[in-house]
Design a protein around this nucleic acid. Structure first.
Length: 173
DNA sequence: CAACAGATTCTCT
DNA sequence: GAGAATCTGTTGT
């Protein structure tokens, strides 16, 4: 298992997103395998960065390779990996992970996995710890329409690992 | 300043 | 399938 280099996140979110699949993110010593992601760029009307920097999304305009964590609907946290170059306002939303010994019902869904891993706004702006375990075979990502938003819904920016390779990674399409 | 929509999830129907 | 929970940012009065 090797730590991913800092350059890993220094590319467009649409390139980094599929590469994140099957990689591991470490949170408080726990390793979670990323199984579903979604890319957000500043030209995306559904992106928090679309209308520029605010107090909430400041981390999204910060250096790549760090976390952007925000509170949605006043109760759920969502975690993103900042990508591109500092100031771009790009990020990849982590929508589902696999955690050994944990039911997928608790780790599938952006609001669920943050609760399970204990990720809250205190993680906003922190350096992300990402690893490649060198074990998982390369998989063909599945691209699906986006959910939970009302603009640019059909942009192909959501990726997940094939269902058979990851029980519990399948959800609304 | 009031109103509303939102990168969601849970509960009840 | 509808409604609630309730923070953040945008838009309209």
């Amino acid at each position: 298992m090797r730590r991913l280099p800092a350059t890993f996140a220094e590319a467009d979110a649409t390139e980094v997103a599929p590469r994140l699949l099957n990689q591991l993110m470490r949170v408080d010593g726990r390793l979670a395998r990323i199984t579903e992601v979604e890319a957000y760029t500043a030209d995306d009307p559904a992106s928090h960065s679309f209308r520029g920097r605010t107090q909430r999304n400041a981390a999204m305009f910060g250096p790549p390779g760090h976390w952007y964590v925000y509170l949605i609907y006043g109760l759920h946290h969502c975690v993103n990996l900042v990508t591109g170059a500092e100031g771009d306002g790009q990020a990849v939303l982590i929508r589902a992970v696999e955690l050994p010994g944990t039911p997928s019902a608790r780790t599938v869904g952006p609001g669920r996995l943050t609760r399970e891993l204990g990720i809250d706004r205190s993680w906003d702006g922190r350096l992300a710890e990402l690893f490649d375990d060198g074990v998982a075979p390369p998989l063909m990502p599945i691209v699906t329409p986006r959910v939970g938003i009302s603009q640019a819904v059909d942009w192909p920016r959501r990726w997940m690992v094939p269902p058979q390779a990851s029980a519990g990674s399948q959800r609304n399409q």
